[in-house]
Simulated scan of single mutants.
Amino acid sequence: MNVTRPIYAVGDIHGHPDKLDRALDLVAADGGADAPMVFLGDFTDRGPDSRGVLDRLVAGRDAGRDWRFVLGNHDRMFLRFVTRGEVRDSRIESGKGWLHPALGGGATLLSYLDLPGFRHPSGGGLDTLATEGLDDGPDALVAELAEAARAQVPSAHVDFIESLPLYIEDDDVLWVHAGLRPGVPLAEQDEDDLLWIRDGFLEHDASFGPLVVHGHTWLDAPTHFGNRIDLDGGAAFGNPLVPAVYDGRDWFTLSDAGRTPLTAP
């Protein structure tokens, strides 16, 4: 695909609407407010305001902006908690659940729920979910949170996450959250791999056919590896959310200083 109009993209936002707003400002300054964008998933968890992030994304979509989105593993965990009350995912080898502070589900719930009577086992209230989590029960408290989430998380947010595809194909670019299993046809890829894969993907140095543009594995900054580009620059861990732009056949990152080439080593 010889892009005639630049396409902008951002990696994992993880509940930081302020960082999203800054990234959108950078995109608007470079390509205009109606610039086409791809969002690579993990809109929720860890940060202080997942609700605010989803509010902005849903509003942009509903306003007709040329925005496309793919599903992230954290978005699926959030959805499964709200719709099923599930806190475990088989791909988490540590056994930690979504409500463990390392996964950040408690921070997401804190941005949505009003439960003044909730009491954490530590003796705190709902605000302790962000720092202490609720990884090992009690089951009754987890069920209380799931029931409150079903009632208080807006249906527009649930519907939005349920609508997200696992990947987007743009001829010579494949946009996906985590990556894909080398040697497996795209139509036969496992959903869990598309959302979670690292081993077998990150060390693969041959061509995937299209250039794979993904997030999920955080680095200090977006990085071009030749056969793939990782756009998760660690916004969940204190770094800014850095947009990238695909213009013609060239890639750049954006900052207040403008464009910086994003090239393979």
Rank of each mutant, 00 (worst) to 15 (best):
A149M: 05
G31L: 04
R119D: 06
A107F: 11
A23F: 04
A102G: 08
D30N: 09
F225N: 11
W98H: 10
A178V: 04
V158E: 03
T83N: 00
W196H: 00
G215D: 14
R22M: 11
L202E: 08
A187N: 14
L254S: 07
E169D: 15
A130V: 07
A23Q: 02
A206G: 14
L40G: 07
Y246S: 00
A149D: 03
D25V: 12
G32I: 11
F160D: 06
T44W: 05
G183L: 14
V87H: 00
S50R: 07
W98G: 05
G72E: 02
A187H: 14
V142C: 00
D127C: 03
A143V: 14
W218V: 03
D12Y: 04
G32R: 09
D172G: 01
H100W: 02
A206L: 15
L129H: 14
S50D: 10
G137H: 11
I13S: 07
E188W: 01
D170R: 13
E86S: 13
G117M: 07
H16W: 12
L231S: 10
D256W: 12
G11V: 11
R80T: 12
G11T: 10
G52Q: 10
L126I: 13
I7G: 01
G183T: 09
R76H: 04
V245C: 07
D135L: 02
G117V: 06
D220M: 01
G258C: 13
P210T: 12
D127T: 13
I13T: 08
R51V: 03
D135Y: 04
R228M: 05
N227Q: 00
H14Q: 15
S111G: 09
D25G: 15
I197G: 13
V53L: 10
N2T: 02
A107I: 10
F118K: 00
L202Q: 06
Y8W: 11
G106V: 07
R119C: 11
E132A: 13
L219P: 05
A29I: 02
G106D: 02
V212L: 15
S90L: 08
V184N: 03
A235Y: 11
